[in-house]
């Protein structure tokens, strides 16, 4: 942005004359401010590389990714990757815990996230948006270091049902690198329960070094988008058939697990010395 653009941008923001969509997504704030803040982390800290961007269909699709790293940094990096490398705004479905929190809940809406529920997923997919989901949820992001790169159960397959109803392809997405940013070697169970959190991790740096422990380790990241899995071959009426949904869920899960294994080998060690 040059000085003039910056001035009109500031004037527009101060006067409130900008668009926010019905989900609360503030595209301008997201592109010009939030992603800008995340970019150094993406480029220089994690040195993220993307593979298989051509697998993203031009229209609406559901990107299904593995979830790890204690804090949802992988979601934010996926967002930067899709914005910067593919020019796509991804609409992520988030846990209701995030939406219950002051500040974070509304900030996450402004960056285009919404609640992971059937209504919101269906509505976004119907509008032809690129929707991102992490079906492992807290089981994935909060798993211990010993379980790294082992996909957890994929919820109840609600995301597959949504894709079937909308007739959009599912793009399996494998993220390698997020597992190493905060290696979770233990858990503080009682404080977590008192704070109403799903877990409070012990990592090599946290809580020993206080806020410094929140600095993620600089692991090398790879994000791969796999070949789309068609869901439009299934009759939308079968979105309620648990058998059909489970089968497709398993297929997506196995695809991601396979590609995670290959991607890990390709990357080599997480930290360059």
């Amino acid at each position: 942005m040059n000085a003039e653009e910056l001035l009109t941008f500031a004037a527009r923001r101060i006067s409130g004359r900008y668009e926010v969509d019905e989900f609360g997504y503030d595209a301008e704030l997201n592109d010009k401010v939030i992603l800008e803040l995340l970019r150094p982390l993406y480029r220089h800290w994690f040195r993220v590389e993307t593979i298989g961007l051509h697998n993203l269909p031009p229209d609406g699709a559901l990107v299904v990714a593995n979830h790890s790293g204690t804090l949802p940094v992988d979601a934010l990096m996926l967002q930067v990757a899709l914005h910067d490398e593919a020019g796509r705004a991804v609409r992520l479905l988030g846990a209701d815990l995030v939406h219950r929190l002051p500040l974070l809940g509304h900030l996450s809406r402004k960056t285009g996230h919404t609640l992971a529920c059937k209504e919101d997923a269906d509505r976004l997919l119907r509008k032809g948006e690129l929707v991102g989901v992490f079906p492992e949820g807290f089981k994935g992001i909060g798993k211990p270091w010993s379980q790294r790169y082992k996909l957890q159960r994929f919820g109840r397959g609600g995301f597959v049902a949504s894709a079937i109803r909308a007739g959009v392809p599912i793009v399996p997405c494998s993220i390698v690198g997020a597992e190493e940013i905060y290696p979770k070697i233990g858990e503080l169970r009682l404080p977590a329960r008192l704070l109403g959190l799903p877990y409070l991790p012990i990592t090599p740096l946290f809580p020993w070094f206080g806020p410094l422990g929140l600095v993620p380790l600089p692991s090398k990241w790879l994000i791969e988008f796999g070949e789309p899995i068609r869901s439009d071959e299934v009759d939308p009426a079968e979105a309620d058939d648990p058998m059909v949904v489970f089968e497709l869920t398993d297929q997506v899960r196995e695809t991601i697990q396979r590609s995670l294994n290959a991607l890990r080998l390709r990357r080599g060690p997480a930290f360059f010395l």
């Binding site: 989900f23 609360g24 919101d120 509505r123």
Partner: peptide
């Protein structure tokens, strides 16, 4: 906070 984004 756990409402769907848009009510029909």
């Amino acid at each position: 906070p756990t409402d769907p984004a848009v009510f029909t």
